[in-house]
Design a protein around this nucleic acid. Structure first.
Length: 424
DNA sequence: TCTGGGGTCCTAGGACCC
DNA sequence: TCTGGGGTCCTAGGACCC
């Protein structure tokens, strides 16, 4: 047994907490943050959780309940959340050199050379310092593996008596495991949970003690890894992908899009931002997938997708735009009400590794010229602000296809929105 | 009427080869 | 009519995550 511990630091009700930092009046009232187009509930304050409003529920199904209980709702403000996330990260960097950001509101921290008691104190310091420096409440779960740290975090969050920090070394861990259902385990989703239950495995403890041969047979590699991790054997040594595998840009449309031109302009924007993203990472794509779909919830729904494999990987917006237009013509069906669409770039390769053709064709010269234009555009957009310079094909996007009616201000990133303290 | 967006990993199965 | 076996590579789709 090594002296290494892994801590999972997870922000409590992160999006809601961000809204509350800059609007103290929201402190003791129920608050919910909605997804894009204000379609679903994606973050809830404790008061909203207590009302029995589940994560991800469509707003129209709980609208009455939200109104009746005076729930304050907000459109998601990713500029604000992204900036607050960076502040939390920066604070965490004072506590460990071994930080692995896992999502917008979670990070794994590695620590060595501390006793069990010291590591708990260290966790308490994280909780108080992050709150003091950023205003965001966090919980800390500690374990020998990421799966155990996740579980410990869950316990810390749900049980106030632990003041936000729980370690899987705690003598009560076994009791908690016996009481927690397998669904709470990281990596156990609907399918694996069903499989476990059909074999009489219902609690986390059952899963930890499951026969390994049985696990290998019925739970495959992922599930088996989870069983080992619950036993303190580290199988997941990193959650940081070695490099970006794919990039997706997609949105649902409200109201739906019917005509080809609007769809084309909207997807052009996706292509442009995705291409900008891979240029930033110095990558090229070789495999482009385009998709459009009507509502999944209607009968006779339609899903059209077209994969295009390129001879030569590229990150050139103009080139990608042409491919997209050809693909869109193939999958577009007249008269449909498209609710969602997007573009996926996969098979990403390093820019340097892209093979150049032997001779420079006319197309090639065109491409070299457009590459220069794009690099100037990227620079300008980065310096002055996203969307300062755009290509003609997507400059007239209908703003109505992206509904955000209850957006809070960009308190931390926009001069106009910085909160002002008024003296009497 | 109204149902998010962005990722990774694994596996089954087809294509192809000897 | 009968129609190998085993390997690799690739992709689509499912599962899972936040």
């Amino acid at each position: 047994m090594t002296d290494k511990y892994i801590a999972l630091v997870d922000c409590n009700n992160f999006f809601v907490s961000c809204e509350r930092v800059f609007n103290p009046r929201l402190r003791d009232v129920p608050v919910a943050v909605l997804s894009n187009n204000d379609g679903c509930v994606v973050a809830r304050s404790q008061e909203v959780k207590d009302l029995g409003i589940p994560m991800g529920i469509p707003v129209f199904r709980v609208r009455e309940k939200l109104e009746k209980n005076g729930v304050r709702t907000f459109s998601s403000n990713f500029v604000l959340y992204g900036d607050m996330s960076a502040r939390v990260q920066k604070t965490l960097s004072h506590f460990s050199y071994d930080i692995e950001p896992y999502s917008i509101d979670e990070s794994f921290l590695g620590v060595k050379g501390m006793t069990a008691k010291q590591v708990r104190q260290w966790g308490q310091e994280i909780v108080s310092t992050v709150y003091q420096w950023t205003g965001i409440p966090v919980s800390v779960g500690i374990g020998r593996t990421r799966t155990l740290a996740k579980l410990a975090n869950h316990i810390a969050k749900k049980n106030p008596e632990y003041s936000g920090v729980f370690s899987s070394d705690d003598p009560h861990m076994a009791d908690w495991m016996a009481r927690y259902p397998i669904e709470e385990v990281w990596g156990i989703g609907r399918r694996l949970a069903k499989k476990c239950r059909s074999h009489g495995i219902t609690s986390v403890k059952d899963l930890r003690d499951a026969d390994r041969k049985w696990a290998a047979k019925y739970l495959d590699t992922v599930g088996t890894r989870t069983v080992l991790e619950l036993n303190g054997e580290e199988c997941i040594t990193t959650t940081v992908p070695s490099k970006t595998r794919s990039i997706i840009r997609s949105r649902s449309f409200d109201p739906p899009i019917i005509d080809f031109d609007t769809l084309y302009r909207t997807l052009s924007l996706f292509v442009a931002t995705a291409a900008g993203k891979i240029r930033e990472k110095k990558l090229c794509t070789k495999h482009i997938t385009l998709f459009i779909m009507t509502s999944r919830f209607i009968e006779d729904n339609y899903y059209g997708s077209v994969p295009v494999i390129l001879d030569r990987a590229t990150n050139n917006t103009i080139e990608l735009m042409k491919i997209m237009k050809i693909g869109l013509r193939r999958i577009y069906r007249t008269g449909r009400r498209y609710k969602k669409g997007g573009v996926v770039f996969s098979s990403l390769v390093d820019e340097d590794a892209v093979q150049l053709p032997l001779s420079e064709s006319v197309d090639e010269r065109f491409q070299n010229r457009t590459e220069k234009i794009l690099s100037v555009m990227d620079t300008v957009n980065k310096k002055i602000g996203e969307g300062t310079v755009k290509l003609g094909s997507y400059q007239f996007i209908n703003k109505k296809t992206d509904k955000k009616e209850q957006l809070s201000k960009r308190f931390t990133t926009s001069w106009q929105d910085i909160p002002v303290v008024k003296a009497k």
